[in-house]
């Protein structure tokens, strides 16, 4: 079982990103569970979601304490929360950032400027850049699921073509 913890702020699309990850994994023929952790948080507050991917049905509903992968949709959260807590020794990190943030040094970090991609592709809703579809592209590049399944998941959930375009850009630009 592969376990992912996703950090974002309320309103950034973290919950949808988690659902897209589950859907893309499912399109790969795997089993997946995406479980947003709902607190009393409102828009802007740091939130986490848990995603589990496995070859057999998933029976676990509790939170993920020792993730294989940590996804950070908003680099400013690094200053608020120890996002690396419990990360497995060989665990990986994906951060939405134009460069490796200082706090992430020493980990196996991949990064891509998802915010910049969202702005470039005009993927902005109500003033907020949308990160949930671009991040799927980056995760596909990391091999979490196939590129085709990622595209299929995005198409199933969104009709606006900018989403797929942004995801492809993230796929290409992942460092």
């Amino acid at each position: 079982m592969y376990e992912i913890r996703l950090h974002s702020r309320g309103g950034q699309g973290g919950v949808t990103a988690a659902k897209l990850m589950a859907l893309a994994s499912f399109r790969d023929g795997k089993f997946a569970t995406a479980a947003p952790f709902y607190g009393a948080e409102r828009r802007g507050a740091p939130i986490v979601s848990f995603i589990r991917i496995d070859d057999k049905p998933i029976k676990v509903y509790s939170q993920i304490h020792n993730p294989d992968l940590i996804v950070v949709l908003d680099p400013s959260i690094l200053d608020l929360v120890n996002v690396f807590e419990g990360l497995k020794p060989d665990g990986k990190v994906l951060i939405n950032a134009p460069d490796i943030p200082k706090k992430a040094e020493g980990y196996q970090v991949r990064y891509v400027d998802l915010t910049g991609i969202a702005l470039k592709t005009n993927l902005v809703v109500a003033g907020s850049p949308i990160l949930n579809t671009p991040v799927i592209g980056a995760l596909a590049k990391m091999g979490l699921f196939s590129r085709e399944s990622a595209a299929a998941a995005i198409k199933e959930m969104f009709s606006d073509e900018r989403n797929l375009k942004a995801a492809l850009m993230a796929y290409e630009e992942l460092v």
Binding site: A18, K19, L23, F26, F31, T33, A35, Y38, Y61
Partner: peptide
């Protein structure tokens, strides 16, 4: 069904 633990999680 369990609140959040099942109501809000995504599965196949």
């Amino acid at each position: 069904l369990d609140g959040f633990a099942l109501s809000h999680i995504s599965q196949q």
